[in-house]
């Protein structure tokens, strides 16, 4: 497990040091959501209604933004070869990468979400359910994203490719995430909120398997 934590520690260090681009995803999250009212107008009631959906769409896009460097940076400087050759199972290495991505991208986005919720006139009662749902759903974004990042290693314009590969796989996260976040705001029949939260958790748990296994398989092909 030492190898796992060593990799997570190194990734977090790299993201937070100068030039690491640690805050870029949060910045993108802020700016994308701030642009929305320019498109649809500053009507607060309308903004309240679309806020959960917009927040989730922006979360997805922001999480994508930093994925292209996940393995590509290591491929460019030769690190990837040594990661693949190390005694640690490649699945754990991919998991460490996904965990680091979540720590440096997903978690900051979840923390920034309430500020944007305020700007989109999301009622205060809706903040905690929103953050809770994002906390449960965002790991799936990093885990599934790792597969896309691994698949596009060594591909020119890989960043663009990742978006195309990964976004379809993000659809369940979006559906259950928005549904769980909205349930706190509008009256929904039955226990829809709890159900969607459970389903969101299920997607994340499934990604916990799919991400590392798929990512490792993709990397093995990519380095060869």
């Amino acid at each position: 497990m030492n190898a796992f934590f060593a990799l997570v520690q190194r990734e977090v260090r790299l993201a937070t040091r100068v030039g690491g681009g640690g805050g870029m995803a949060v910045f993108f999250f802020l700016i994308v959501l701030s642009i929305v009212p320019f498109g649809i107008g500053p009507d607060l009631n309308l903004l309240t209604r679309i806020a959960p959906g917009m927040l989730w769409v922006a979360l997805l896009l922001s999480a994508l933004l930093t994925l292209d460097r996940l393995f590509q940076a290591d491929q460019e400087d030769g690190t990837l070869d040594l990661l693949v050759l190390a005694p640690q199972p490649l699945e754990l290495t991919v998991l460490a990468k996904a965990v680091s991505h979540w720590l440096t991208t997903g978690l900051p986005l979840v923390i920034a979400a309430p500020i944007l919720g305020l700007m989109l006139n999301l009622p205060l009662d809706g903040m905690l359910p929103l953050m809770g749902a994002m906390l449960i759903g965002s790991p799936a974004l990093s885990l599934l994203g790792a597969v896309g990042a691994a698949l596009s290693v060594g591909v020119r314009r890989g960043g663009l490719l990742i978006s195309l590969l990964v976004l379809p796989f993000y659809v369940p996260v979006l559906i259950f995430g928005v549904s769980a976040s909205r349930a706190a705001l509008v009256a929904v029949p039955g226990d829809l909120g709890g159900q969607s939260l459970a389903l969101l958790g299920a997607v994340s748990l499934a990604s916990l398997v799919v991400g590392p296994v798929g990512g490792a398989a993709a990397l093995r092909v990519a380095v060869k």
Binding site: R10, G19, G78, T79, P87
Partner: peptide
């Protein structure tokens, strides 16, 4: 390729590989 990360200190670079290779 040297697999050296510019933002990390020289010793941090090697310590990582030590930990990663046990």
């Amino acid at each position: 390729l040297d697999a050296v990360k510019a933002p990390l200190r020289v010793s941090e670079n090697l310590s990582f590989w030590a930990a990663f290779y046990g």
